[in-house]
């Protein structure tokens, strides 16, 4: 690590002020991505502003048909919260598949979404559910938020404060974990909310994306067979030492089908 100053602000305002005052300051949430980056000397922030304990960024509640989760809420809290498990079981199940217990005990929703790793799980839920990402400045629709690999609509000094998930009528997430990292080699989140079906895919492409063909097919008929009839063009999907694009194209179909079967075969929309 290079040297940096560690600051623990008492309020969101103070955190925002610190970020505004120091060009090279970075928010630190669970640190599960940022700390390894620092250890590898791949980043050299002047200050780390620790936002993990800010009360404004914590909490889980359901209001007006929405599940609202504070940005500093840890994965383990989402996975085990009775509120989440009742209102949006697919999201609790998703959180329980992230990394390992140590990572889930530290890593946070806001950190994951802000980081927008192309293989992260949460972005699929945020996009498929049409969630709204709130910052101290504005509200950003999921469709505008994710802008490709490690890129989001977040601006310098802007902090995610909470994420509001509209409650779906039915939803499920199916993930194929990467054999080494445990991240999503591919993950598919299927949600039907207010009569509209949205399907988001993580891991397969350069950043999370909506799978429009699947959405259209499911709007026609909400069944695994609709997915199985699709042909996925692998061009543009990720290819690396772990798998060719064709494999990820295949996984999209396999996982979307699993998600649908999970939705249709159980009352709860669990992870397939």
């Amino acid at each position: 690590m290079y040297e940096f100053s560690y600051v623990k602000p008492a309020s969101l305002d103070e955190a925002a002020q610190l970020l505004a005052n120091h060009d090279d300051a970075k928010p630190l949430s669970g640190g599960m991505t940022l700390i390894p980056t620092l250890k590898q000397r791949l980043a050299q922030p002047s200050h780390l502003i620790d936002i993990a304990a800010l009360t404004e960024l914590r909490g889980i509640e359901v209001t007006a048909g929405q599940l609202i989760i504070g940005a500093a809420t840890r994965h383990i809290e989402v996975a085990t919260s009775m509120t989440v498990r009742t209102a949006l079981p697919a999201l609790a199940a998703l959180a329980s598949t992230i990394g390992d217990p140590q990572v889930r005990n530290r890593g946070t929703l806001g950190g994951s979404v802000a980081n927008n790793d192309p293989n992260a799980d949460y972005p699929a839920a945020v996009l498929a559910l049409g969630a709204t990402v709130h910052t101290q400045r504005r509200a950003i629709a999921a469709d505008d938020f994710f802008q490709g690999v490690f890129t989001t609509a977040i601006e310098e000094g802007e902090l995610i404060t909470r994420i509001a998930f509209p409650l779906p009528t039915r939803a499920a997430y199916a993930k194929f974990p990467h054999p080494a990292s445990g991240f999503a080699m591919t993950g598919v989140f299927v949600a039907e909310t207010g009569g509209r079906v949205r399907v988001a895919v993580t891991g397969a492409g350069p950043g999370v994306f909506r799978w429009r063909e699947a959405e259209a097919a499911l709007a026609d008929r909400f069944a695994a067979e609709s997915i199985e009839a699709l042909v996925v063009d692998p061009s543009g999907l990720n290819a690396d030492i772990h798998a060719p694009a064709e494999y990820r194209a295949n996984l999209m179909k396999v996982l979307a089908s699993r998600a649908l079967r999970a939705i249709l075969n159980s009352s709860e929309g669990a992870v397939a």
């Binding site: 798998a243 064709e246 494999y247």
Partner: peptide, 11 residues
């Protein structure tokens, strides 16, 4: 025998 290689061989 990684998943991708096995799947590729079957395909």
């Amino acid at each position: 025998a990684t998943p991708a290689r096995i799947w590729g061989a079957i395909e």
